[in-house]
Design a protein around this nucleic acid. Sequence first.
DNA 1: GTCTATATGGTGATAGAC
DNA 2: GTCTATCACCATATAGAC
Lengths: 189, 189
Amino acid sequence: MKQETRKEEIISTAAKLFKEKGYSAVTMRDLASAMGIKAASLYNHISSKQDILKVIIISLAESFTEGMAVIQSSNDLCLDKLRQIVKLHITISSQNVYGMASLNNDWMHLEEQLEYYLKLRHDYENDFRNILKQGIDSNEVIDKNLDVMLFSMLSTLRSLYLWIPKKEDLNLEELAANLSNVLINGINK
Amino acid sequence: MKQETRKEEIISTAAKLFKEKGYSAVTMRDLASAMGIKAASLYNHISSKQDILKVIIISLAESFTEGMAVIQSSNDLCLDKLRQIVKLHITISSQNVYGMASLNNDWMHLEEQLEYYLKLRHDYENDFRNILKQGIDSNEVIDKNLDVMLFSMLSTLRSLYLWIPKKEDLNLEELAANLSNVLINGINK
DNA sequence: GTCTATATGGTGATAGAC
DNA sequence: GTCTATCACCATATAGAC
């Protein structure tokens, strides 16, 4: 188990606070207090509040991009690719529940990296849509409401960070199977 | 068409700004500037920034509670009740896209009304869960993963405010039918 | 209904001692 | 690596003139 550097400690503490109140409502004094030090001391490890947000969001966004690239390059059936996307979201979300809150809710407070983030997100959604499209072409997926399907799946997957920490003794493999099943087959008997 | 009072004008302008940057990041100067007046002038119409947030969130939360009460009291089949819940979310979200952002993302900044809001939300989720449970008992809904189904449907419905404004020429009746279909029957062929 | 002026306190960040 | 002290600025909100 690699031990956290002081900088990583600051970043994960910040992510936790950002999840509770959002980036703008968390002050450097709040963060310092949660670490048991004074605000000025934070600046020995990080260069600015903005820098913390950047690290949290961009590293997560790039994880999704990398995961999607792997899924895309496979020759699996579309429905299997969709199951892999579900797995990707569950894995990343469960490993960084706090950071996912910033990725979802505080991206608009990015400064230098805003456009880069928006491009990553846009490309990710496009790749997701293309997999659904292929599923329609190969007769695996219903040929109706492509955008509604994409919106529904993405909304659910993006909310996992809110839901995962509320379930105790959660088996991630089981969750992936169950959630894939609900998203693909619906809820009716 | 009822014309907006100055107070209502302030509240709907605030909701728009809150959606873009979140409650904490919007200053009274931002809000005043968007209205074309000075910050001090706002206080002739509203008593505090907090008061604006309270009005936006509580009125929406109560709308959902009222809608759910109507749906619950009917004798319709469970799947029909679920379709009505979808319709309820689409109707409220499309009428108040900006306010829905605060309801979803800024509720933690409520002060006096925080507990009241949490109770409304908790009761709403409970009612939703009970409808699904009844659907299982009446053999309309698969008897598996109740919590996963609830989470998935609620996540999608709570994200409608992000998605509705991106679609031009959106027919709400059609969206309700299509979204219900995707949520109930899934996406596979 | 809006303004200017102002009170009071919080904000991110830096300098320099230990 | 942390501290105290401090800077320059921004926050919500009020008082009182027009």
